[in-house]
Amino acid sequence: MTLMKKPSPRRILVVEDDRHIAEALKLNLELQGYEVDIADTGTAGLRKWKDLAPDLIVLDIMLPGIDGLSILRSVRLEDEQVPILILSARSASEDRVKGLTYGVDDYLTKPFELNEFLLRVKRLLKRATWAKGPAPGEADADSGP
C-alpha cells in the first residue's frame, strides 16, 4: 500500500447567479475544508467545469444564458460520474423528474437547510470515491459492485 491518495482538498464548482447565495455556499463549503469556485452564468459554469474538473457540481436551474438543465446534459454527455447536486426554486415533481432524467444525483429545493445541504454534499463526494473504485494497488482487496 505505497500509493496513498493526495490529501488535496476536494474541489466544488458552484454554478449560481445570485451573488449572495453563491457567496454563502462558498463560505460554508470552505469552512468545511473544500475548495470552491463560483460561476455566475451557464457559460462560465461550463467553462469552469472543463478547466477545473471539479469533484462535485452544485447547480442552479434558472441561470442567465445557458440554463442549469442544459449544463447538466452537456456535462453528462462527457462525464457520467461527476456528482451533480441541483438547487432549484422549483419544487414541482415534474421539474425534479426532469432533473433526475438528465442524470442529476441529488435535488434540493430552495430555500433549504444549510446543514442538510452540507451533509448531502459530503455524502455525494463519498459515494463518488466509491464509484471510482478502489485506488490502484488495492484492486484485489475490495470487490465493489
Binding site: I21, A24, K110
Partner: peptide, 18 residues
C-alpha cells in the same frame, strides 16, 4: 415570482444559519 421570492429567502436563511 416564486423564483424572485425564494432567492432572497434562501440567501437570508443561509446567512442566518451560518
Amino acid at each position: 415570482f416564486t423564483h424572485e421570492l425564494k432567492t432572497p429567502v434562501t440567501s437570508l436563511r443561509l446567512y442566518l444559519e451560518t
